[in-house]
Amino acid sequence: MKHRTFLWFILPSLSAMVLFIALPIVSVFVQSLFVAHDQVLVVTENCGPFGCKQTTTVDQEATRALKEAAPLGKFNGFETYTNRGHLALAEVSQAWRSATGIGDFVSQVLNLPFYRAVAFTLSYTFVVTPFVILLGLAVALGVNSLPRAIKGPTIFVSLLPMIVTPLIGSLILFWMIDSRGLIGATLQIVFDDPDLSLKASPTLTWITLFVYGVWHSAPFSFIVFYAGLQTVPQDTLEAAMIDGATRWQRLRYVVVPYMTPLVTFITLMQLMDNFRVFEPIVGFSAQASATSLSYIIYNDLRGGDSQLFGSAAATSMLTILGVAVLLLPVLIRTWREFNRKPV
């Protein structure tokens, strides 16, 4: 295809991506260098019969004028990145010096908001992803051996957790794990503990969120594996059987190797999706015990009276950096493959 024609075909799509994905990243970077203006304070002296008193008030007029003149705020350089809400360099080095051991240091660092969010985001990503793959494969193997007539309805039901809006899905589970809901009440009976609440302890909240994550994403890997199973050549399976391979050996040495490219695909998709975990934290009202990177950005942007654009932008930049690191191996591999094949 000629360069010119190519350009005309791709232009609308490309300009949408440049305007609303690439430029916003630039905008995020610029915003992250600024912080909100200080409020303009006026000191007035009131002199009465009992002497003079100084009162400090906020000059609303001047503050607003300042905001309008420079909506970005005042220049702050990379200060936002290093403050307590983000990389917290001062606090971390303080913790390093005062900590009694590695455990103490880690627990001090994990009390800082940014590192807490990083810890949860990474745990969520790296716990949920393998479980999604295993559960998906297990369900796919199970469904594959069902009679043909009930496969359709089974797939329909299996798709539901994935297709449902993440916020809605997490709300539905949240209501069920309420101590007055179906799962919550059952767990209280099973563990014989009337005060058991999945919402109270941070550990249980984390586990709940992981379970939600697996429930939500398992259908995706199930469908991919199920479609993959249809393409496993029957000849190879039969040959293995004739050679005396047991059922387990056939699974291990014929089916699983066929699934390996699918595992790579699912892992890539899941890493991308789980890294931005956000809605479940809102749905489960879990922000007290678990925050993710996306959640703290949302929290800064929503913030009551004043939105903390600078802070949100700095976290966003760090998140984008994280995504880049996560994708780097994939990109390098794809690039190598691309260079290898003749154009």
Binding site: I21, S27, V28, L293, L301, L327, L331
Partner: peptide, 29 residues
């Protein structure tokens, strides 16, 4: 078949991985 088509696809893959909320923080102001 040109190289730039490949690069556009790669860029799209990176964009696909971008958490939406980070983009939103770029739009708001």
């Amino acid at each position: 078949g040109y190289k730039y088509a490949f690069w556009i696809l790669m860029a799209a893959l990176v964009f696909r991985a971008m958490p939406h909320i980070t983009l939103v923080s770029g739009y708001l102001l």
